[in-house]
Nucleic acid binder design. Structure first.
Lengths: 391, 391
DNA sequence: GCGTTAACTCAACTTTCTTGAGTGTTCAAG
DNA sequence: CTTGAACACTCAAGAAAGTTGAGTTAACGC
């Protein structure tokens, strides 16, 4: 039972500078625009140090001057903001039948999104497709490869051979070798791999409803149901990268134990409605069923809300998050409906009077959520000081 | 909905050095004894830098020379080890009826442990008791206050007013104001507050069965049942410090939903046996019941194992830990029995062929587990590089 | 108007790390 | 047995990045 120490790096001038640069970028990003003195106070560095770092970042093209603000006495503040075209991130979501790609700029604005159907789901096919899509994205947006900071890849978990393997939506050929490695060498970029729920959570944290939150959970409606976890500003991956597989835990619905995923997921609603003779194939079908107040859909929503209430109790009591966000491949209307119907457990550490956020919130939904989340992984990394992380 | 950025510090020479010192200590601690070159390789620093740092640590009394080892070619390695009396940590566990204290040295060896009954559980009484115990511990062990690196405090959660407040084992008067603050100013020491489960987990990681593990869970039998979570080498506290309240989630036992804590906890076994006309008041009673193969106890153990199996499924699928450890106020025999009887869920991300650790292991049990865990919090902090953490 | 306040710059200084040359010890090949 | 390679470590010089303190500039308020 040999346990190796996780490699951590010592601080030297070079790594210290890189750390400080990311710290400054993060501070500016958080408030939008900021002046040197403000950043110095926030970071515990001297104004001089911040000045030097900012002049570096300006010449690297990561920051722009943003005019002067005179607030109170003293010399007016020269303000700085993130330069949108200071860098770009490529986001990829791999599903068994298609690959979704997105190119976003440094502030997270998508410049290009695309869906490419997959002929087959072999590893080589996927790598080829993603690589071609990257070239296409760069060409269409006139972005140079040098300006790309990395690629985020969202793949359906679980990774490796586990007790959940063999189920529904598998990708063959990925269980051997490190997927990140394969993509990194093929795309010649730094690569970050995550599951859909964590990626969606990070997207929400970078540019969505979870901006500034450091501890929250994200329930992601994908094919099944995934749990994204952010603790201390970092996505929780678990020892083998498979944290958040909430779909297979047992919850109580109408007094009977069922798998959470079988009560609340896209497959679940499709199966339920099919059992009632109603066919849905995409999110638009669900939206129109909802607006026509289809009683079968409403019945499903009710039991989904029940299942969710159990899940909420577990998530809240185990993680004590600032909030729980619901999002993914489910129309806004339905998410809102579920949120309204979900009983907030009383016996929960989250049931506290001094809350700043609702216990349950709706996040971004839609087909591209996870793909944009993949890109957000790259941005997150660019704005997170990491002196000790070995690469 | 204002979200403030978590304060993070920039790197300057002083903080870089402190970071590197902790990194060196951690590297040495991990392997027991080590030479300069070995540490340099592990930390990404130059041998020269490591040399300078080690000479610092020697003169601060945190390291000792440990003789020469000639391994293969080259100059024999001058080895260094942690100096046990290089520093001390005070551990405190506060319960409603008693305060437990321990003084441990830098390698974690307890020099002094004590149980002090509490006349009442008012805040002032507790602070007085702890303070007196600290003085006593220092006097009896001849340790100077300057050598104390801090105090770890274990208190029953949940912290603050929550949906679980008002239950069984409360301490009045702690919901207002920061407990850490109160202890820090009273003891004039750096203070770290945790719940019992997380503290026990950190103890196990520092000196127990979880040495070197960075991602694991600890199920702690206290009054109720608590979940300690270590992710990335850090205890997970949640947004409000109340993560790990697993006792109140619903699990299935014999087909019926029950609160986990009512099926598996010290109170649970007492209540169950009382219902069968068997009275137990302490762990020794349980041990003798077990060795006499009491059928009521065995029946309880069986249903506890069932409940645990459900809990295990949740923990594994949500956290994907390296292992789950069982420990706390329950005799070893009983823990071993439960572990042997607990069905390992098949539908779990932890059910994988390439495991290095068993899925369920027994940790340290006994009355002082959490108290020593409290002290371990201080040691953990001393061996963890933290350049960016604001204090 | 004029002093106070505050942001920012400049130049000198400090800390800490890295680099490269040099020393001493051990092992192994000729 | 000699010689050279391998390796740990030290010394001294140099580089990188931070801090400090004095000085400059602009706005506010009395």
């Amino acid at each position: 039972m040999v346990t190796t120490l996780k490699p951590q790096l010592g601080a030297n001038p070079e790594r210290a500078r890189s750390h400080n640069k990311q710290l400054v970028l993060r501070a500016i990003r958080h408030v939008g625009t900021a002046g040197r003195a403000e950043i110095a106070r926030a970071s515990g560095l001297s104004t001089q140090a911040v000045s030097n770092i900012i002049s570096d970042l300006l010449s690297e093209g990561l920051l722009v001057e943003q005019g002067v603000r005179s607030a109170g006495r003293g010399l007016p503040v020269q303000q700085y903001a993130i330069k949108p075209d200071g860098g770009y991130a490529f986001g990829v979501e791999v599903r068994p039948t298609a690959v979704f790609t997105a190119l976003v700029d440094l502030v997270g604005t998508p410049l290009f999104t695309h869906r490419t159907p997959l002929g087959d789901a072999r590893k080589a096919t996927i790598l080829d497709t993603v690589s071609a899509q990257l070239d296409d994205a760069l060409a269409k947006t006139q972005v140079s490869k040098e300006a790309l900071m990395g690629a985020g890849i969202v793949m359906p978990g679980p990774f490796g051979e586990t007790g959940l393997t063999g189920a529904d939506s598998e990708l063959p050929g990925w269980n051997t070798g490190d997927p990140a490695e394969s993509f990194a060498s093929r795309l010649d970029l730094p690569v970050f791999v995550e599951n859909d729920a964590n990626a969606a959570a990070m997207a929400e944290r970078m540019n969505g409803i979870a901006r500034g939150l450091d501890d929250f959970a994200y329930l992601y409606f994908g094919q099944g149901l995934g749990l994204g976890l952010v603790q201390n500003g970092q996505a929780v991956q678990g020892a083998f990268g498979n944290a958040g597989e909430i779909g297979h835990i047992t919850v109580i619905v109408q007094g009977r134990p069922v798998e959470l995923e079988s009560a609340t997921s896209r497959l679940s609603v499709q199966a339920y409605l099919a059992g009632q003779g109603v066919t849905v194939t995409n999110m638009d079908d669900l939206t129109s069923l909802y607006s026509s107040e289809n009683r079968h859909l409403f019945a499903w929503l009710d039991q989904a809300a029940q299942a969710l209430s159990s899940a909420l109790s577990i998530i809240e009591n185990l993680f004590d998050p600032q909030t729980v966000i619901l999002g993914g491949a489910m129309p806004d209307d339905l998410l809102d409906h579920i949120i309204a119907r979900t009983a907030l457990p009383e016996r929960s550490v989250s049931n506290r009077p001094d809350r700043t956020h609702p216990r349950l919130m709706r996040g971004t939904s839609g087909r591209m959520t996870a793909t944009l989340g993949a890109a957000a992984l790259v941005l997150h990394q660019a704005f997170t000081p990491t002196i000790a992380e070995a690469r």
